[in-house]
């Protein structure tokens, strides 16, 4: 396959270039390189070029070519003229939004209570919330599937099951960043707020919530994006009746790389736009919006 060859070439070139750069450096200086910050950055730059920028270009090229590698808008037109594809995107976004919202609703109070409590053993509780992350997620999703099967929910409520699985899977990713930002809020800020006459309610909405925005944004990003593409959950819990955008991509790459690349590109744009939106959640009004 030409693509496999291409990837191998890129990989080999990256290694050669890195080694070459080091060797050249050594020859010029005549001794073992004294690593400046710039020199230490070279491997990362090489990595970024070949494993982030190059693959994206490859996807871009594939998306806008046909099977004969001729430039073509055909995939673009095909995608946006197919109602099932568009509705799948819409479904994916809705499922991701609901998952994110539910995660946030559960995670914020947990993180808040843990961060503010003076309990000595709170790390244990935090650990219990995070612990499932250490167990292989396919195993966990399988377990839930069996559970749903046992209580007879499997195949009965596919969308509910999917969202349930995703919330279960992604909750730690929402709790951790929020907990971390809440922990970073200095106690003296709460005291200052009370000192200036604010009650608990005012303090929460005027101090705690605005200052936890960075955690909320990173939590939202870490939940929203994967829940649009994680088709393992939708496959197993949605009884293969729920198709999300990630599923599409995987199916297309089995047959038509060009169409698959186009879907991936569309997803990339959706992700990019949603990141822009969450990144813009900075003013107070939007913060409340983020808390839904």
């Amino acid at each position: 396959m030409s693509t496999t060859v291409l990837i191998l070439i890129i990989f080999g070139a990256a290694l050669l270039l890195g080694a070459g750069a080091l060797l050249a450096y050594r020859l010029v200086r005549g001794h073992m390189p004294h690593f400046t910050r710039k020199a230490l950055g070279i491997p990362y730059a090489v990595f970024l070029i070949f494993f982030v920028i190059a693959p994206m270009l490859v996807i871009l090229v594939y998306a806008f070519t046909d099977r004969n590698m001729h430039f073509s808008f055909a995939n673009f037109v095909k995608f946006f003229s197919d109602p099932t594809k568009l509705s799948t995107i819409a479904y994916s976004i809705v499922i991701a939004l609901i998952t994110t919202a539910v995660c946030l609703l559960i995670a914020f109070p947990v993180a808040y209570i843990l961060a503010r409590s003076k309990m000595k053993k709170k790390y244990v509780i935090l650990m219990l919330f995070v612990l499932p992350m250490w167990i292989n997620f396919v195993l966990r999703i399988n377990a839930i599937r069996e559970l749903f099967n046992w209580i007879g929910l499997l195949g009965e409520a596919n969308y509910f099951n999917t969202v349930f699985g995703m919330v279960y899977d992604f909750l730690p990713f929402m709790i951790l960043p929020i907990y971390t930002t809440l922990m970073k809020i200095e106690e003296s800020l709460y005291e200052a707020s009370a000192d200036l006459g604010a009650g608990a309610f005012t303090t929460f909405f005027r101090v705690t919530l605005p200052l936890s925005v960075p955690g909320v944004v990173s939590g939202v990003t870490m939940v929203f994006l994967p829940s649009m593409t994680n088709y393992v959950v939708s496959d197993m819990l949605g009884n293969s009746m729920v198709t999300i955008i990630g599923k599409f991509i995987s199916e297309y790459f089995a047959s038509d790389w060009h169409m698959g690349s186009m879907v991936a590109l569309v997803l990339l744009i959706v992700v990019f736009v949603s990141t822009l939106l969450t990144g813009g959640f900075k003013s107070e009004e939007n913060v409340r919006g983020a808390n839904l």
Partner: peptide, 14 residues
Amino acid sequence: PNKRPVNTVFQRYA
């Protein structure tokens, strides 16, 4: 604290 007619200047400003 919010019911007391006193105000504080904190050590690290807060």
